Amino acid sequence: MSEHAIKTKDREALELALGEQIHALISASHALNVRSAERFDATLQPAAFHLVRWLYSYGPTSAAALAEATAMDRSSVSRLIKQLETSGYVSKAQDPDDRRGILLSLTELGEQSTVNALKEKESAFYERISRWDDEELGRFTTMLRQFNGLEE
């Protein structure tokens, strides 16, 4: 909105409606994340799956970097990593760039279990966009990128 634009009642209603839809998206995404976490391993907390998803997406990292990237405290990350390691989903290895450092990474079991767990989430979202044509999907993606501050 330009600095000279006047906020109208219609604009306020549109902004409220947008807020409701963003909340609905976040809520639906959270519910799907919880179901995916349960599908991954019902004995673990959903927060453990959050760490697994990060490792799956971005690769090996230190516990400190993982804590920072996921906005979790180090003690929680440490406890969850210990559980994931005991379950065979995560392994630790010496950092080749810093011999004192330890890198966390997914094991083959961790990667395969992550892929299996994410299938449900993907199918739910793909089902929602399946009736859109390419132009609608492109427009939606562009607008989301703009909304997320990734594009002007």
Rank of each mutant, 00 (worst) to 15 (best):
D98K: 02
D98F: 04
D98R: 05
D98Q: 02
R99E: 01
R100V: 03
R100F: 07
G101P: 05
I102L: 00
I102N: 04
I102Y: 01
L104Q: 01
L104V: 03
S105L: 12
S105F: 01
S105Y: 06
T107M: 03
T107S: 01
T107Y: 08
E108T: 04
E108K: 06
E108W: 00
L109C: 00
L109Q: 08
G110V: 06
G110Q: 10
G110D: 05
G110E: 08
G110S: 04
E111D: 07
E111L: 10
E111N: 08
E111F: 07
E111T: 07
E111I: 06
Q112L: 14
Q112W: 11
S113L: 09
S113M: 09
T114D: 11
T114H: 14
V115L: 12
V115K: 15
N116F: 12
A117C: 12
A117Q: 12
A117R: 10
A117K: 14
A117S: 14
A117P: 09
L118R: 15
L118M: 14
L118W: 09
L118A: 07
L118N: 09
K119Y: 09
K119H: 06
K119E: 12
E120Y: 14
E120D: 14
K121A: 13
K121F: 07
K121E: 11
K121I: 04
E122T: 09
E122L: 14
E122P: 00
S123T: 09
S123P: 00
S123I: 05
A124C: 13
A124P: 05
A124R: 13
A124K: 15
A124V: 14
A124N: 11
Y126D: 13
E127T: 12
R128G: 02
R128P: 01
I129W: 06
I129N: 03
S130L: 02
S130H: 06
S130Q: 09
